[in-house]
């Protein structure tokens, strides 16, 4: 399957998706680690994609999302941001609200 179709399929299949380096249990990058920690801290049930094991997604997601770096957090198919934005949202309490809304929808 075309990589863009695969990305769309992943986003359609899960309300919250984190494209990251490594896994939430074994993150391979500090930024990915902090983003996954913030999601866990608000009790988010999220799907993660390890881009280090999927070079095609790693190469093509930045163009699809218009965002050059990883991690990338999506809620309902929409890019929320990378590490800095996710942590800002976490600190303001907004991340918890987004995660709760994603669960209801």
């Amino acid at each position: 399957m075309d990589v863009i179709e695969r990305i769309k399929g992943t986003l359609a299949g899960h309300p919250i998706v984190l494209f990251m380096k490594g896994t939430p249990q074994f993150p391979m990058c500090g930024f990915s680690s902090r983003t996954a920690q913030a999601l866990k801290a608000v009790g988010a049930d999220f799907h993660s994609v390890n881009v280090l094991e999927d070079p095609e997604v790693r190469a093509n997601l930045p163009r699809y999302s218009n965002w050059p770096t990883f991690p990338q957090l999506f809620i309902h198919g929409e890019l929320i941001g990378g590490c800095d934005i996710t942590l800002e949202l976490y600190e303001s309490g907004e991340l918890e609200r987004l995660v709760q809304d994603a669960r209801k929808a």
Binding site: F31, N66, W67, P68, T69, G82, C83, D84, I85
Partner: peptide
């Protein structure tokens, strides 16, 4: 924030591929 970060990335252009691995 999303738009602001995109504006920063856009300004940096190909430096994001050639010189910058990670940017806070």
């Amino acid at each position: 924030p999303l738009a602001r970060h995109r504006a920063v990335y856009a300004a940096l252009g190909e430096l994001m591929q050639t010189d910058i691995h990670a940017l806070a």
